[in-house]
Design a protein around this nucleic acid. Structure first.
Length: 553
RNA sequence: CGGGGCGUAGCGCAGCCUGGUAGCGCAUCCGCUUUGGGAGCGGAAGGUCGCCGGUUCAAAUCCGGCCGCCCCGACCA
């Protein structure tokens, strides 16, 4: 097909809006692919929607290829389904009532809806099932940001698998993972599959697909040798070994008056910061005070702490600390504290300096297991001078966009929604469920983040809104149409810039919009019946006869 | 929700400090000239200065409240 630029809505901008920061945000707005309506609410213009649909098409093909079946479920959903699974309380959930006062939600994702439909599955003979749809999701995000990267309403491809047991779920999960790899490859983006937090989705495990990019909300940790990739929130990287002082048979008190920071403590006692421990008392949602213990040079990772405690928590107040430990906050430690101590795993080996629970006093040579009995957990935030846990190699930290997330939900939704089946042995069992999401809009933003230059976007052919940009220069309009016709006949989609504009302007727009190939039809070459064919990515240009344009691709 | 920034024409900005009734560049419209990397000349159109209130003879400008947008944090299927 041939689209005429003179008749399209192509609102390109010379400058990006002042508030845009992320590259994808700037370029997508400048090139006229998206427009904002309010915080986190975006329209796709005709050009942007073409790209979105191409991404959808790739996803659809790969979903169909693993035997998944396409549905369409409504956005508006009765609140009862969400009450049943306990997710009605989620703060990001948009809630609304109809005129009769019935309660509804605008789903974050459609687990409840599909588990509801799965009630119609009766027998193990009908399993496994994989269902998917492309549907609008709404989220009352506390902070939408970075153009398409975090929005309040977006289309998601979400699929749901139903199996008779864990082994079946593993298989459905594996198939989806493989399909996702193919999807991202076809979209031309670099991604890493990593272990992830399941957050409010629940379930037994999940994998994230993280795409490194200039902007994003996740931090991807990878090893230089390619044998390790993780989200920083769950990364267990190797901390630098501390420079331990001489071993002591029992803890030894040292006077440390007025020493309240790790730096001051390490300096006073001339020990490595990594050979000290930091005590962080927190109060769980149920009011219990727990002492978290990490190495002096480490930072507590809130997400890891959350999963270790299995509960929300807040830092203890000074008063609570004095009451529980009998000393100032700067001198507290695990010995003599009669509540639960959760220690980071790094503290499992070696002797550390710790607070003595007497103001102005610390203990040298404190050893976990000998002097106090902690529960060990991964609490520390991964950091740049850690090394790869697999090979000891150097680590790289990159910001990344979460483009896909797959979950093993097990029976978290099917039990409350009573989606069960009759198994071969005649017993009724809950369906074992998985869920799998991809945001085409985020994929689109990621492509731009990973594929652009100073001039604009560089679309991979697989998702480009059109295949070829034909720039018609003045005086040779007829030949330009002819070139477009030849390309069209060869099965390519063509954007023909027939606008009454100057060459420089058309070239700049072509670079900005970023179709993979640009063809310049101008006086200079048409006398010879030829045009210039330029590759957007490399800038390489070659001269091709109009008649043979069809074979030039 | 906490911290910071911004809101003046479609986009980018100046004017605000020191009140006197709004300006620049690009884009847009008309005409002529130009035409292989964002043209030149001439003419024109376009603004409740985010909203409400206050101070004042007079408010884009000073004061108060509110709203919106962006960034950092919290949060993040």
């Amino acid at each position: 097909m041939i689209a005429l630029a003179s008749q399209l809505f192509l609102p390109t901008l010379r400058d990006a809006p002042a508030e845009a920061e992320a590259v994808s945000h700037k370029l997508l707005v400048r090139a006229g692919f998206i427009r904002q309506i309010a915080a986190g609410l975006w329209s796709f213009t005709p050009l942007g929607w073409r790209v979105h649909r191409k991404i959808e098409h790739i996803i659809r093909e790969e979903m169909d290829a693993i035997g998944a079946q396409e549905w369409l479920a409504p956005v508006l959903t009765p609140a009862e389904l969400w009450e049943a699974t306990g997710r009605y309380a989620i703060t990001e959930l948009f809630k609304l009532d109809d005129r009769a006062g019935r309660h509804y939600v605008l789903p974050l994702t459609h687990e409840e809806t599909f588990a509801f439909h799965a009630r119609e599955i009766q027998s193990y003979k009908e399993l496994p099932q994989s269902w998917y749809h492309f549907q609008t999701k709404d989220r009352d995000e506390p902070r939408p940001r970075s153009g398409l990267i975090r929005v309040r309403e977006f289309i998601m491809k979400d699929s749901y698998s139903f199996d008779r047991d864990g082994a079946g779920l593993d298989e459905s999960f594996r198939k989806h993972g493989e399909a996702y790899w193919k999807i991202f490859e076809r979209c031309g983006i670099e991604v890493y599959e990593v272990a992830a937090e399941s957050g409010i989705m629940g379930g037994s495990g999940s994998r994230d697909f993280l795409a490194p990019s200039g902007s994003g909300e996740n931090t991807l940790v990878t090893c230089e040798n390619g044998d390790f990739a993780a989200d920083i929130e769950v990364a267990r990287t190797m901390p630098r070994p501390p420079d331990f002082p001489e071993r002591l048979d029992r803890p030894e008190e040292v006077e440390t008056p007025g020493t309240t920071t790790i730096d001051a403590l390490a300096a006073l006692l001339s020990v490595d910061r990594a050979a000290t421990s930091k005590a962080m008392p927190v109060v769980k949602a149920d009011g219990t005070l727990v002492l978290a213990l990490i190495r002096g040079d480490d930072r507590l990772d809130d997400m890891k702490m959350l999963s270790a405690l299995g509960s929300d928590f807040r830092p203890a107040t000074e008063e609570e600390i004095r009451q529980a430990f009998g000393s100032d906050p700067g001198s507290i430690g695990p010995i003599g504290f009669d509540g639960e101590v959760v220690a980071d795993e790094t503290l499992g080996v070696g002797q550390y300096v710790a607070g003595a629970n007497r103001t102005g006093v610390h203990l040298r040579g404190v050893e976990a297991g000998r002097d106090y009995q902690p529960r060990f957990a991964d609490l520390r935030a991964s950091k740049e001078d850690d090394t790869c846990p697999v090979c000891g190699g150097r680590l790289r930290f990159q910001t990344a966009i979460e483009v896909g997330h797959i979950f093993k939900l097990e029976t978290k939704y099917t039990i409350p929604l009573e989606a069960s089946f009759l198994d071969e042995d005649g017993t009724e069992k809950p369906l074992v469920m998985g869920s799998y999401g991809i945001g085409p809009g985020r994929v689109l933003a990621t492509i731009v983040e990973q594929s652009h230059d100073e001039q604009g976007i560089v679309w991979p052919r697989s998702v480009a809104p059109y295949d070829v940009h034909v720039v018609a220069l003045p005086g040779v309009e007829e030949q330009a149409h002819e070139a477009a016709t030849v390309l069209d006949a060869a099965g390519l989609s063509v954007l023909l810039d027939d606008r009454d504009a100057r060459a420089g302007e058309k070239f700049a727009d072509a670079d900005l919009i970023g179709l993979p190939t640009r063809i310049t039809v101008g006086r200079k070459t048409v006398e010879d019946g030829a045009v210039d064919v330029r590759d957007r990515a490399t800038g390489e240009e070659r001269r091709v006869a109009i008649a043979s344009l069809g074979e030039a691709f």
